[in-house]
Design a protein around this nucleic acid. Sequence first.
DNA 1: GGAGCGCTGGAAAGCGCTTTCCCGCCACGC
DNA 2: GCGTGGCGGGAAAGCGCTTTCCAGCGCTCC
Lengths: 338, 338
Amino acid sequence: MSARQVTLAEVAKQAGVSLATASRVLNGSTRQVSEELSDRVLRTAEQLGYVPNASAQALARNSSSLVGLVVHDITDPYFSCIAAGVTRVAEEAGLSVVLGTTGRRPEREVELLSTLRAHRARAVVLAGSRTTDRSAQSRLAAEIDAFTELGGRVACVSQAKLGTDTVVPGNRAGGRALARSLAELGHKKFAVLGGPSDLVVARDRLAGFKAGLADAGIAPPVVINGAFTRDGGYEAALELLASKSRATCVFAVTDVMAMGAMAALRERGVRVPEDMSIAGFDDIPTLRDTVPALSTVRLPLEEMGEIAAGLVLDAGGDEPRTVRVAGEVVLRASTAHN
Amino acid sequence: MSARQVTLAEVAKQAGVSLATASRVLNGSTRQVSEELSDRVLRTAEQLGYVPNASAQALARNSSSLVGLVVHDITDPYFSCIAAGVTRVAEEAGLSVVLGTTGRRPEREVELLSTLRAHRARAVVLAGSRTTDRSAQSRLAAEIDAFTELGGRVACVSQAKLGTDTVVPGNRAGGRALARSLAELGHKKFAVLGGPSDLVVARDRLAGFKAGLADAGIAPPVVINGAFTRDGGYEAALELLASKSRATCVFAVTDVMAMGAMAALRERGVRVPEDMSIAGFDDIPTLRDTVPALSTVRLPLEEMGEIAAGLVLDAGGDEPRTVRVAGEVVLRASTAHN
DNA sequence: GGAGCGCTGGAAAGCGCTTTCCCGCCACGC
DNA sequence: GCGTGGCGGGAAAGCGCTTTCCAGCGCTCC
C-alpha cells in the first residue's frame, strides 16, 4: 500500500539528467533544454507516472494554484450559479477551486479566509453578501488585508466597501425598476418581504424598491423582515397575511424567498396573481419553470461569477476595480394588473 | 505590497525558543512543552499574526488538508445538495474542500483526479454518476488506483464498481417502488424519460421502474432517452407528445428532468395531473414548492454527501465499504388516479 | 552513590521542488 | 589568438515546516 510517490529526482536519475534539467523540462521554465534531453525526461516521466507534488511546487515558487470561493450556502441556487461561473474560469486557468461555506456566519468567513491564507491561495472570491455589523466588517477587512499583504487578490460579489475588486449587481436600480414596472400594472399598496435588516444586498434591493414606488407617487410599502431563505419567505408571508395588510402586490427580495412566500399564500388559499401579485429578484434558472412563472429581476449569476474570477485572476493594477452588472426586470405570470 | 509572510522561524526567534519548540507548540505534537515557553510562543505568534504555511506543512508531513469533491455541474441541485453535505463534514474535520466540475466529460474526471493527486489530497468524493463506457471507466479506475497508491482515499456516490467506498442510493428499489405506487393509482400505460442510455444511475432507475411495472402486470413503458438535464426532460417530453403515445403517466428519471417535462406539457396544453401524471426522482428541496407538487422518490442528498465524506475521512479497513441509502416514494399532486 | 529513566529543549536532516549561480562549450569579432 | 558573450547543463541553496536524534537535567531505585 501507499507506494512512495514518484519524485522529480527519480525521473531525473532514470533519465540520466540533473534535477534542474528535469524540472526545467517538466514545467516550461524560461530556460531552453535540448530536444534530446527534453524528450528523454518527458518519456521517463510519462513512463513512471510522475505527477509533481503541488505542495512542494507551491513552497518553492511561493505561490499556489488554489483559488478560494466563499459562499454562504452552496445549496442556494444563487450561490451555486455564481460558483459555476467561478469554477469554470478558474479551471480554464489551470487552477483549483477550494470551496468554503459560511452558513451565513460572519466569523466563519474570517476563518475561511485565514485557512485560505494558510494555503497561500492566490486569490479569493467572496460571494456572500455583507452585513452592516461594524465589528464583523472590520475583522473581515483585517483578514482581507492580511491576505492581500501576502500577494493574494480578493474580489467580492455584491456591494462591498472593502477596497477590493467588486462585481456589483444593480440591486438598487433593479429594485427601483421593478417597483416602477409593478406600479405600472396598477398596484397601489405594496408589501416587501425584506430579508434580514442588516444584510446589504437586502437593504439595497429594498431601498431601490422604495425609491421606485416614490417615483410613481406610491406610499411606502409595509416591510416584513425575516431570514434570507425559502423558509424566511414563507414565514414573512404568513406574517403579512396575519397583519391584514391591504397590499395587492408583494416583493420578496430574492426568488428563493418568493418561492417560500408563494407556498404560504397557496396554503392560505390566496391565489397568485389573482388575489396577490408577487415578484422576486435574481431570476434563478432552476426556478424558471415554476407555476405561476415568477416575475423578477434577472441577474446574470454565472456571468457574475466569471467576472469575479476574471478580476481576481488577471493581476490588474492596484486600484480596486468595480464591474457593475445590470438587472433586468422580467414580468411573468406571478404579477397581474390591478 | 506583498510583505513577506511571517514564518515559524521568526516567531521562534522573537519568542527566544528553537524552531522545534515553536513548531511543537503551534500544532499540538505529542511532545510536551513547558507552560512558560508555550505561552511565550503562543503570544508572539498571535502578536505577529502568524499563519502556518499549509504547503510547507503538507510537504513536511507528507499529507495535506485537502479533500476533493468532483461533480458534474454544481448548478444542478442534486450535486449542490451532496456538496453541502460533503463540505459540512470536511469543514468540521478541519479540512478544505476543493471542488472540481466535469461538465459530464469523463476525461475531465480523470484530469481532476490527477490534479487532486498532485495536491496530495487526502481523500476524494466522486459524486458524478458513472457511465457504462468501458474505456473511460478503465482510465478512471487507473487514476483511482494511482490516487490510492499515494495513500489517498476515494469514495463514490452512486453505483460504482471501482473497488472504492460507495454510497449507493436505492435507485433500482426506488424506481420499482415508485412504479408500483403509480400502478396502484390505476395507470396502465407508462412512459419513461430515461436520460442518457449509458448512465448507470439512469439505467438503474429505469430498470427498477420496469421491474415494478412487471410486478404489477403492466406492459413495459415507452422509453425516450435524452440529456440528464432540465432541457433533456423538456425535449424528451416533446418527443413523447409527438409520438402520440397513449401513456397516462410519465416517469422522468430525475426531478430536474421532470421539471423540464412539465414545462413542455404545459406549453402544449397538457394538464398535469388531469391529462397526464408525472413523477420524478430525487426530491430536490428547492423544487418542493412547485405547482403541482412533484411526486418523486426522496433521496437524502445532503446526508449522502455527509456519509460519503464520513467514509472517506475515517480511515477504515481495506475492504471497500458500501452504504445503502433507501429512497422513499412520495406521492404528491403531480400524479392522479386514473 | 551511580545507573537508569523520563522529560524537555535544541540542532539539524529532510520533505520535493525551483532557481540562482557557476562552469564548460562554442561562435564570433577584433 | 584571445577576449566576449550566449547558451545548455549541473550543483546546490533555499522555500517553511516536521521530526528524529541527541544533550542535559532531575528523579527514582537498587
